[in-house]
Simulated scan of single mutants.
Amino acid sequence: MSFFRLNAWQVFAIILVGLNLRPVLASVPPLLDLVQAATRMSDTAAGLLTALPVFVMGLGALGAAPLRRAMSEQQGVAAGLALIMAATAARLWAGQTSLMLATGIAAGLGIAATQALLPSFIKVRFGAASSGIMGIYSTAIMGGAAVASVASPVMAGHAGWLRAMAAWAWPAALALACWLAATRVSSSSVHAAKPAMAGAARTARSRVWLLAAFFGLGTGAYTLVLAWLPPYYTALGWTPLAAGQLLGGVTAAEILAGLLVSGFIGRLPDRRPALAVAIGALFLGLAGWIAAPAALAWPAAVLAGLGIGALFPLSLIVTMDHASTPAEAGRLASFVQGVGYLIAALFPFAAGLIRQHLADLTPAWMLMAGICVALFAMAMRFGPRRATPVP
């Protein structure tokens, strides 16, 4: 019974951790017009507000091996949360473009450490149930984005945009306290349970790169929509609150999709049908924003949200499917997320360039729709299989 309670508390802590991995990013887009007006930031620099943290997340994930050797997963996740909390709180004084970018970079490092180390912790603690826990964790990530995108404009209306962004340090502090309390009891046993890398079967390099590219392109849809959907609609005459609510609708659909994935993924050993449905929903959502952005705003938002919300956890689950040990899970998670986030960081930056030169984001949606076709072809290669040793 005590073990059950321990794991229940750890699941709760994992949920809180996930909830705090996106508010530092999701709080910016609904307030972007206010930020640009106050700082005289260009569209290209505005794209960097999302692109730079995501880029740093990729670099940090690729460099997670030294961190993993220096400390346990519990300690690394705690350090990441502490950095997220500090960077978010520092936004209270980030009234200049350079300071805003600096806080984003610091937060990106904290997110990278947390995301690189948590999957191996989940693999160790939950074993056969790790796919479901990964689905819950990724759903929590999207839930945090939903809350931040809706609540930030409301808080900005009462306290100003700097305080609205910095306020997300408080939930990060709560998550840090709960994580330390939930993992303190078993930290030594989990650390000792890590298997050695030597002799473990490794996934073929070509498949690892395919997983990384798939994760990166799919996450690129998330970062693109997160960064530029509200500005796209404020340019069409929507208020920041209404545009933030639309982004909240996207993320609410993402949460629903994530919950569905968590509930049913155990019954689908072949992940390809779920991947095909997710990519198809994303494609239809993008098509709605291209064809009739005003009339189809909400139906397209729901479809895109369902697609992104299923694609994100499925990408992580497919990656974990290729791991035969917790050590392999950590190695794969670090590499796939590292390369993937480097790819995903290009999307909001490229969209900022498009908007600055063409004053329209429709070409960005069209480009992403074309990438969906490539994602579908890649997804069809992820049939059920065992990890294969590298010669």
Rank of each mutant, 00 (worst) to 15 (best):
V250G: 08
H158K: 15
L6K: 13
G104Y: 00
R202T: 14
A82L: 08
R202Y: 03
G127M: 04
A177V: 14
G248F: 01
Y137T: 01
P195C: 10
P231C: 01
L361A: 01
T114W: 00
V56I: 15
P30C: 07
V318Y: 03
A87C: 02
W365G: 01
P171S: 06
C178S: 13
Y232G: 03
L83K: 02
P293Q: 04
F283V: 12
Q75H: 15
R331P: 08
V124G: 14
A175S: 05
L210M: 15
G108C: 02
L241Y: 12
V77Y: 00
V24L: 13
A8T: 15
L176H: 04
P269Y: 10
L311A: 13
L174S: 13
I290G: 05
A82K: 04
M155W: 09
R331F: 14
Q115R: 11
H158L: 13
Q356R: 06
M378L: 09
A291D: 11
T114P: 05
A90I: 00
M57P: 00
A294Q: 12
R271Q: 11
G60C: 02
L275M: 07
I343C: 09
S2A: 15
W161V: 01
V318M: 06
L162H: 07
S120M: 13
G127Y: 04
L316H: 03
L176T: 08
L32Y: 01
S262T: 10
L67E: 08
P231L: 03
G47R: 05
L211G: 00
S187L: 14
A8N: 13
Y137Q: 01
R184C: 10
A379K: 01
G58V: 00
P53Q: 03
A94L: 00
I265T: 10
W238R: 12
R386W: 10
Y232P: 08
P66Q: 07
A300H: 12
V190S: 12
F335V: 13
S27G: 12
A64F: 05
A252C: 05
A304E: 11
Q96V: 13
Y232E: 15
P153C: 06
G135M: 06
L236Q: 10
F3I: 14
T234E: 13
G104M: 01
A301W: 06
A112H: 04
